[in-house]
Every structure is written in C-alpha cells, then in structure tokens.
Design a protein around this nucleic acid. Structure first.
Lengths: 182, 182
DNA sequence: TCGCACATGTAACGTGTTACATGATTAG
DNA sequence: CTAATCATGTAACACGTTACATGTGCGA
C-alpha cells in the first residue's frame, strides 16, 4: 500500500489538501494504514493530477498560506475501486517491541518490566483513540474495521497483562548497574 | 527494524549464511519481523564484517557452491543488546486487506465474501505455522512471543468469523457482471 | 529435460524520509 | 519572544527490491 493509493482512498470520501492528508495519515484514521510525510504526499498528488485521477483548485486565504484543494475525478474513483479488485498486497507487521521481548533473557528485569508496563499504557491509549475514531467515522465500512482493530488490540493487551510475569521471570535479575550484554 | 539488526538477532542464536538468513526472514520465525531479500542481506553482512560485529569463514562443499558462514563477535553481541536498551522504533501494521474492507460498500458482495473466506483460511495456516515454530524454538523468549502472535491472530480470526455477515450485507448485491466502480 | 535448491553477489531502480526553503498568524 | 500551526514544495539521502550474472546437482 503506497502513498498514492492512500491519497486516492482519502480523497474518495471528500476533498482535502496535501497538508490535511498528511495529518490524517499520521494522527487520523489512516495512521493505522500508513505514516506518510510531505515529501511523499506532495509529489504523489502532483502525479495523480497529471494522470487526471484528481483535480485541484487553489483557495487563497487571508493570514494563512494559500491552500491547494484536491478532489478525486470519476476516473480516479474507478481506478481506485479497480485496484481493490486486483490481488491485494500482504498484510505486514513489524515489531521491534517483540524482537526486544524475544531477548528478554538477555536483558535486565527492570527494563523488561518497564517496557511491558509502557506498552500496556500505549495500547490503552490506542484503544481510547479507536473510540474517538468510531464517533467520527463517515464510511459504512469504518465501524467494522475499527472494531476489528479494537478486538486485536484488546487481545494483545489482555495477553501482555496476563503473561508478563513469565517474561519478567526469564529476564536477568537487576544488579544495580545496567550491564546485561554478554 | 532494519535488515542489519535482524542479521545480528539471527546470528545471536548461532552461525548462519546469507542464504539461510534470507530463508529465515522469508519462511522462518523471522518472517513475522521482516521479509528481506538477498540484495539487502549480503551487503548488510559485508558491512557488519567491516565493523567487526561479525566474522566469516568459507566452507567449500562438493557439488554445491561454497558457503560463507557468519558468526557474531562479542562486540556484535554487545552492540545488539545495547541497541535493545535504546528507544525502540514503533510497531507498524499495514494492511491492504483492511483498506479493501473499509470500502466494502463500493464492492460486489461476492468479492467481499470471497476475500473474507480466503482470509480465514490464511489465518488458520498462520496459526498452524505458529505451532510448528513453537516446536522448533530455541530461545526462551520465543514461546512467549509466539503465543502473543497466536493470541492476536486467533482474536482476528474469531472476529472475522463472527462479524463477516455485517460486511457482506453492506456490499453491493451482485449484478452478474463485476461493475462496481461508479 | 525442465526447473528447483543450493549459494553469492552487484546494478538499476523504486519509494519514502529528513532536512531545507519560505513566511504570516496566533497562542502561551 | 518563542513555539506551534498553517501551507507547499524540493533536494539529498537512506533503505530496500528486482533483475541480472554464474554455476552444479538432483528429482520429477
């Protein structure tokens, strides 16, 4: 899933500027799909405009920089939907956190304990964010997808909570200093 | 989490060749962390050797190409563990499947139904793979991490199974042809 | 005999990030 | 007065993938 596709998906639901798309992709509902920067969004939108899949109009504002508002064209809509018919890319999950936990036996107990506690707090925050998102959702499929994410997150949270003791027991008892390597 | 770090993690548990590392990262237990190709692994190993974090020896074989077996050095071990003390990168999850489902209302019922069914089969295969992995695991933290993955996958599977009807109901009734794009 | 498994490596290419350039307004 | 928000865009860089180059032995 590239920035291009995400731009089309966002514009499918309504107009937006590059600035807004970036915000959605970092903080909004799309942050669970991608995390795009300006350096990728602006060129992607320019290319989509060249290909006539989106159009733009400039809105001058007083006190603020001019906005370039993008809209999806009928061709853009059908290209996007068409892409959903084609073979989808595989889901991918990358977790440095899990790599860290895998090496719990080589790490100090206090660090493992701290990271597990932090993670529970983070997951709870994400769970709360899902609730906010659910209130704001516009798309009919949104609620389903948000609840899917919610269910997985909740399972992760419960697992960590229930089994963290086992991992902490595996870790190296603290020695006062933080020498754990070797 | 880059290829470099994954190479160190794999070599932490024992010697391996670039060829084997790639296999582990694509089919093996590391495939849940990364999916690296030769084009990234060989240069990464060469660089790690330059930095003295790994060493290599060549093993000539009859009938097969010579192997270059890499081992981690004490400096490599401590550099890797040290990296786990530093702030970890965030987990990331990218799913074209969820993007697809979000647009269920724009897609034909039969396609949505098919993709959901396929996904259940895939998740079941992954679940079975976790069981295989658990039998083969060497690391003490492995079992915990595998069960974590298992728990999340199981929750995803159950959710899809229980709620798929809702999404299918949202989709466009089939018309015979596959015209769903506006 | 066709293609896969073994095995290493490079070059071209794609895609995205970070940092830079620019600049007014507003909230603390 | 300082930092953040709004707003667009480019250039340098990092990192990874795909395809190419090379070659043997084995099973279907």
């Amino acid at each position: 899933m590239n920035v291009r596709t995400v731009c089309l998906a966002i514009l499918y639901d309504g107009e937006a500027t590059g600035y807004e798309i970036r915000k959605l992709s970092v903080e909004g509902e799309y942050s669970y799909f991608i995390d795009a920067s300006y350096g990728s969004i602006y060129p992607a939108l320019a290319r989509l405009e060249q290909e006539r899949l989106v159009t733009s109009r400039v809105e001058v504002q007083e006190g603020k920089p001019a906005k370039k508002i993008y809209s999806i064209t009928p061709a853009g809509r059908s290209a996007f939907i068409q892409s959903l018919f084609e073979k989808l890319g595989e889901d991918e999950y990358r977790s440095e956190f899990l790599l860290f936990l895998r090496f719990a036996s080589e790490l100090p107990q206090s660090l493992v304990e701290q990271r597990l506690a932090e993670r529970i707090v983070e997951v709870d925050a994400t769970l709360a964010d899902f609730d906010r998102l659910k209130k704001e959702h516009t798309h009919p499929g949104d609620a389903w997808v948000i609840d899917y994410g919610r269910t997985c997150m909740q399972a992760a949270r419960d697992y960590i909570h229930a089994h963290r003791g086992k991992l902490i027991a595996l870790a190296r008892p603290d020695t006062g200093d933080a020498a754990a390597a070797e």
